[in-house]
Simulated scan of single mutants.
Amino acid sequence: MVCRRSSARATAIGPLAAQEGIALLELTSKEATLEQAYLDLTSTVTEFSARAPQEV
């Protein structure tokens, strides 16, 4: 199961889960880079595309 929270940190979630009796086998923080954010925003934009050669 993946839980995504933009404002919560793994260091805060771990103790809270333990207090509620929830066992967590793995808990990691992942932060996107500026490069990844740019790639996500521009993933549908095509600047160049290839076409099949036309016969003359």
Rank of each mutant, 00 (worst) to 15 (best):
M1R: 10
V2P: 08
V2G: 00
V2M: 03
C3H: 07
C3M: 10
C3T: 02
C3V: 12
R4V: 11
R4P: 00
R5W: 02
R5I: 07
S7K: 11
S7N: 11
S7D: 07
S7M: 01
S7Q: 10
S7F: 03
R9M: 00
R9C: 00
R9G: 00
A10N: 06
A10I: 08
T11Q: 11
A12P: 02
I13D: 05
I13S: 03
I13C: 00
I13H: 04
G14L: 08
G14S: 13
G14M: 02
G14R: 15
P15K: 08
P15V: 04
L16V: 05
L16G: 07
L16I: 06
L16F: 02
L16N: 01
A17G: 02
A17P: 01
Q19S: 02
Q19D: 08
E20S: 10
A23R: 07
A23C: 01
A23K: 04
L24C: 02
L24N: 07
L24F: 01
L25D: 13
L25R: 06
L27D: 00
L27Y: 04
L27A: 09
L27G: 08
L27P: 03
T28V: 11
S29M: 05
S29H: 06
K30T: 11
E31N: 05
A32D: 01
A32L: 15
L34C: 04
L34F: 06
L34H: 10
E35S: 12
Q36T: 09
A37L: 10
A37H: 03
Y38R: 09
L39P: 00
L39K: 13
L39I: 07
D40H: 12
L41Y: 03
L41F: 06
S43R: 15
S43F: 06
S43W: 08
S43A: 13
T44R: 13
T44E: 14
T44D: 13
V45L: 14
V45M: 14
V45N: 11
T46K: 15
T46W: 09
E47R: 15
E47D: 12
E47G: 12
E47K: 13
F48D: 12
F48K: 10
F48L: 13
F48S: 13
F48Y: 13
A50T: 12
A50Q: 11
A50Y: 09
A50V: 15
R51D: 05
A52Y: 04
A52L: 09
P53H: 01
P53G: 04
P53Y: 03
P53F: 03
P53C: 06
Q54H: 08
Q54W: 03
Q54R: 12
E55A: 11
E55P: 01
E55Y: 05
V56I: 11
V56C: 02
